[in-house]
Each structure stands twice: as C-alpha cells, then as structure tokens.
Simulated assay, not measured.
Amino acid sequence: MISSMMPFAFEFTSPSDRLQIGLIAIRWYGLLIATAVIVGTILASRLAPKRGIKSELMEDLVIWLAVGAIPGARAYYVAFAWHEKFQFQPWYKVFAIWEGGIAIHGAIIGGAIAAILFARRNKVSFWKIADLVMPSLSLGQAIGRWGNFFNSEAFGSPTDLPWKLFIPPCSVREDGARVCFRPPDLENSPGYFHPTFLYESLWNLMVFGILMFIFNRFPKAKPGTLVTIYAIAYSTGRFWIEGLRTDSLMLGPLRMAQVVSLTCIALGILGLWWLYGRRGRFWDTVAINSENE
C-alpha cells in the first residue's frame, strides 16, 4: 500500500506478490507483464498504418517477439545471477519466471533476433517494424516495472528521503519457504530504500512521450530513428538508476546494465550521426525500394 504524509512524501510497501480472487491466486508480476504485452500490441497495431504497415502484421509479430524476448530475458538474468541465486536451487527454478527475474537487455536481444527473422520471412523492413515497437516497448516497461514493486525486488540503496520503499525482512511464505528480500548486509537496517522501480517506470513514461512526439511530428523520419533515440533516452536513465540498485547483475566488478547502457548510448549517437550526419541508411532485411508491406 502507499501512504502519504505531505506533498511528495510517499512510503511504498508491497501488499503481496499475489492477487487473491476467491481460491484463485494470480501473481501480480505475470499479470502486469501480460498487461504490458496487450497494451503494447494494441498501440503498435494502431501506429502501423501510419507507416504503411498492416496492423495484422504487427499482431503476428507479437507472437514472434514473445518467443524470442521472454526466453532471452530469463536466460540473460539466469546467466548473470547463477552463482548468487540459482546455483544451489532446484533446477526447475531456472524456469520460474513468475517469481520474478528477467532482464530487459536480454529481452531486447532475443526480441531483435526474432524480429529480424520475422521481417525476412514477411519481406518487410526490420527497421520500420522496430521503430513501431519502440513506443510500445517503453510503455510496456513502465507498466511491467510495477511487478518489481509487488515482488519486493529491484529496489535501490537505503534512503531517508520523503519518498521511499519499505522492504520487509525475511519471511515464511504459505508454502513454507523462507524468503529474504533485503541484501544480507542490510537485514537489520530500518528497511527503507530508493523505489527504483518507480524511478524507472516514470523514466520510461517520459521516453514513451518523447518517442510518440517524434513519431507524430516527423512522419518521414528515416527507418531506425526511433530505435536510436530509444537506445539513448532509455539507457541514460537506466545508467543512473542502476547505480542506485542493490541487486545489479554483475560481471566481475562491473554492473552489466551500466556497461550495456553506455554501449547503447554510444551506438545510438553513432546511429543518429550515420542517418542524419552522413545521410546513410542501416542495413535492412529488404531493399529500400522494394518493400512489400
């Protein structure tokens, strides 16, 4: 629940990781991810005709993206969190995505591979459909981040700011399993942390607004423009927010999300320079003058 004592003073506390409806328990994490996919599909389908793409094509693309993005997001997370969270867990926990634990960068990699295959199969520009997906992606991230809130995960370092997230200490779930939410060195802390899920949700909403403005204001922008802008805008915020988190995926002493964010910012800037500085075009799945949308 969320309580406020003064303007801009909020204390967040997750009520539960499940929505109980009678005898049915629905995990908030899965429900929010499903909502993000549905909302994103509707948005991309409505935007598609404005770029000469059939709405039905974007609806078909969603299936391909799910097949590529969800396993990619989970595999990325498991790979970098293996020693900390999965090494001594039962093998099936690797697939327990409903308990949380996916990485957006893994989803983007898996989704991009699926989208390239889809574009080649349907003889359509990869960069055109990628541009159409970007607003849906940022909006979906804004929705999906609230799954971290209900799971009491992906929070930041301790804080005494007026807005803060309370993370409970270890507890025993209904199935008898003992779950610890805080890092071991912070188990005895007051329990208030930066609500980084909220920071990223709000940041993604801002990125969504920027992408929609550019989409509507510049209908003749070159294919790939929204992809590069998303890479710069999202990665800038993610780099800052990741520095606050206590559960970053690590590669040695490096926070992987920050390394990837810096790489994406550099590639995004380079891409914009290539498109508009050099007046070039990206490699694509179809010839520029022979697209068959």
Rank of each mutant, 00 (worst) to 15 (best):
4 S>I: 03
7 P>W: 05
7 P>I: 05
15 P>Q: 14
15 P>C: 14
16 S>E: 01
19 L>W: 15
23 L>M: 10
26 I>G: 06
30 G>K: 07
32 L>N: 07
34 A>G: 01
46 R>F: 12
51 R>Y: 04
51 R>W: 02
51 R>G: 03
52 G>W: 11
54 K>Q: 12
55 S>N: 00
56 E>S: 13
57 L>Q: 13
57 L>R: 14
60 D>K: 15
60 D>F: 10
66 A>S: 12
68 G>F: 04
71 P>D: 08
74 R>Q: 08
75 A>E: 06
77 Y>S: 04
81 A>W: 10
81 A>P: 03
82 W>I: 09
84 E>M: 02
85 K>T: 06
89 Q>F: 12
90 P>H: 13
92 Y>W: 13
93 K>R: 15
94 V>M: 12
96 A>E: 14
104 I>W: 10
105 H>K: 06
105 H>A: 03
107 A>W: 11
107 A>Q: 11
108 I>G: 03
110 G>N: 05
114 A>N: 04
115 A>C: 14
115 A>G: 08
119 A>V: 06
122 N>A: 08
124 V>E: 01
124 V>G: 01
126 F>I: 12
127 W>D: 09
128 K>R: 15
128 K>Y: 01
132 L>E: 08
133 V>D: 01
134 M>G: 02
134 M>V: 11
135 P>G: 01
140 G>S: 11
141 Q>M: 15
142 A>V: 02
143 I>K: 05
149 F>N: 02
157 S>Y: 03
158 P>K: 09
161 L>Q: 11
161 L>E: 10
162 P>L: 08
163 W>E: 06
163 W>P: 00
164 K>P: 10
171 S>P: 00
174 E>N: 13
177 A>P: 00
177 A>M: 12
181 F>R: 07
182 R>N: 04
182 R>S: 04
182 R>K: 08
184 P>A: 13
187 E>P: 00
187 E>T: 10
188 N>W: 07
192 Y>Q: 11
193 F>D: 09
196 T>I: 05
196 T>A: 13
196 T>W: 08
204 N>F: 12
221 A>W: 00
222 K>C: 00
223 P>H: 10
226 L>C: 08
232 I>D: 05
235 S>T: 07
236 T>L: 14
238 R>A: 04
239 F>L: 14
239 F>A: 10
245 R>S: 08
247 D>M: 00
252 G>Q: 13
253 P>S: 06
261 S>T: 10
262 L>A: 15
262 L>S: 13
262 L>Y: 07
262 L>V: 15
265 I>S: 02
270 L>T: 13
271 G>K: 12
271 G>H: 11
276 Y>G: 06
282 F>Y: 14
282 F>P: 00
282 F>A: 10
283 W>A: 15
285 T>M: 04
289 N>V: 05
291 E>P: 01
292 N>T: 10
